[in-house]
Design a protein around this nucleic acid. Structure first.
Lengths: 338, 338
DNA sequence: TAAATTTGTGCAATCGTTCCCGACAACGTT
DNA sequence: AACGTTGTCGGGAACGATTGCACAAATTTA
């Protein structure tokens, strides 16, 4: 079944050599217009399609890029994937998608799987559990182009694309302060993640700018980034058990924001009456139907596009690239009832 | 940069032929234990990884499957993709994901792109605009394994996996009737889509079972399946302009459900007080924060898993498969305020 | 001891394509 | 007329891996 037509078939049918046929199809100069025409017409007639695998073997590239995210079922990532796809397909690359589900082990497996499948480059957003990046470093040192987006590893010198997390966090926290809240807690994911660090910075800066002292017990980490309900629930219960309960929370993640809202819902605590919440979120649905969350939205689509453009630039560079940049895109604040 | 180790390098280093090395690595019987050991140890030492592209060329398969959905940023599909991925990776296949954005043209382009990239099989959910399936038929006749899920084409004889749309629609509509609503409209996507047809059937069956006459002006189609806000808005405005306005709507799609809710929100019509809504949706967020929608939920993850298992069965079959089945999985109804 | 068998290894073809190199016309140039 | 150019084209080696076949050496059998 499924007998694809090859260059050899054309050569045999027309009484030419494979090299001549290849030249005709490739449109090189050293071929007569007459033969070229015959070959092209016949190729079209029998619907010849060059075998990309044979080409890959010869050219030593697969025309595919690997993508590593934590979850596709996350509005930020699905939007970023749309951006990645839009660029990749225009440039003739296909996209191989993998998910870590925030697990370090899955990340390592996925990276190795993609590398052994000889992708031409990698687009990576680290899992929340990832501390050790030697699996990526190894490939990076061997020359595999890698571009980080969103959750980046500063230890690896390459292109990076992120949102202005610090500024976004600053604005969201400032908004809560301006709205009159004084005891503002911070719910975030694992400590080592770049986005956690940046958003924490913005949160602290906003407090400081308004002469509010940071209270360490107001800062809660959820290492699984909202993937485990109990983790989020415990963090919030701890906050609510404090002597001086917070009156607002700044949440540093898409998944955590929804997780946080559902915990409060289950605890019968009204948002924003009993507790104001502002947080990072790219969910259209949440935005539409939950008027209580003031949200920081990232330009996910653009981040995906930009990261892909930069990766393709690395892949198609004639000489090894030595200068790397970190692009930072602005977030936007959607003020709602909180 | 990036010089991968080949079997030839091992052969040269150990003074053996490539065939011997290959046999040692492949663990065939016709090789001495001594040489095998030497080869394996050396291969491990220099971290030899077989080149999957060379293998693909030889074996004429790419160990990859193509997936075509309308949107990843759709909770149903992102859950289905998780199911697909979970099976594919276990079996050593990688997943190439494409989106149609409900456009027929993009569907054709994606199908051709995947085919020319020589995927071993295709997992397809049709776009809402697709009428003509000759692009798929062509490949199917050439022997490319295809499995449909969710939005299927009955004209092509192959495996299919769907939810029990008719039953789900029947239950949702019956629920609205039991709740006392009498004038129940139906908002659905394009007429030709299998899911539209099936859900319409369930809707009509429920009306009939309760001796309610179907009113053709109560049935509204949105060919873009909720992707275009104005389309949904117009449909609803037409319903609201009727002499006998409906008092409830059964919505036949994930995207349409959220679209519909936001239209009512913008029109300041209260759901479920002024208008009750029940509809298909797999969105956790919507489920959590919008208590007004009674939803029909599909086992998306399981559908993805099952479809992938069936596709791999087709791909790895020794003889062409002649018997095809259509698996139908039950939906579940989540009763809320509507 | 000679023949037959087993065992281990190498050679070469193969998958589909490209491209370097050489062949050989048909020219134009001295 | 002899030579160099130019334009076309075919042969064959690559890319990395597998595998049927051949063949030598080692072993067993008669």
């Amino acid at each position: 079944m499924f007998e694809p037509v090859t260059i050899k078939d054309i050569a045999k049918a027309l009484g030419l050599s494979t090299s001549t046929v290849s030249r005709a199809l490739r449109d090189t100069h050293e071929i007569s217009a007459a033969t070229k025409k015959i070959v092209l017409e016949y190729a079209k007639e029998i619907n010849y399609q060059p075998n990309p695998i044979a080409l890959s073997l010869k050219e030593r590239r697969s025309k595919s890029i690997g993508v590593i995210v934590s979850e596709v079922a996350n509005s930020y990532f699905s939007q970023a994937i749309n951006g990645i796809e839009s660029i990749a397909y225009d440039r003739g690359y296909h996209v191989i998608l993998t998910q870590t589900h925030e697990s370090y082990d899955r990340e390592v497996i996925n990276v190795q799987h993609l590398a052994s499948r000889s992708v031409d480059g990698l687009l990576v957003s680290l899992s929340s559990q990832t501390n050790d990046i030697s699996h990526l470093n190894y490939l990076h040192e061997k020359g595999l182009p890698i571009v980080f987006f969103d959750r980046v590893a500063d230890e690896i010198e390459t292109h990076k694309v992120i949102a202005n997390n610090e500024k976004g966090a600053f604005e969201a926290t400032s908004h809560l302060i301006k709205s009159g809240y004084k005891r503002i807690a911070h719910l975030t994911s694992s400590t080592q993640l770049s986005i956690s660090i940046e958003r924490l910075k913005g949160y602290e800066a906003a407090l400081k700018a308004n002469n509010i002292e940071t209270n360490p017990s107001y800062i809660k980490h959820c290492p699984h980034g909202g993937m485990i309900y109990e983790e989020t629930e415990n963090a919030i219960k701890e906050l609510m058990a404090l002597d001086e309960k917070p009156d607002a929370i700044f949440v540093a993640g898409d998944r955590l924001s929804t997780g946080c809202l559902s915990v409060f819902k289950n605890l019968n605590i009204s948002v924003p009456n009993d507790m104001a919440i502002a947080g990072f979120s790219n969910s259209d649905v949440l935005d539409l139907f939950n008027p209580s969350l003031t949200s920081v939205r990232q330009p996910a689509f653009e981040i995906g596009q930009l990261a892909t453009q930069m990766l393709l630039q690395l892949i198609e560079a004639k000489y090894p690239v030595e200068e790397f940049e970190k692009k930072i895109l602005d977030t936007s604040l959607f003020v709602r009832n909180s």
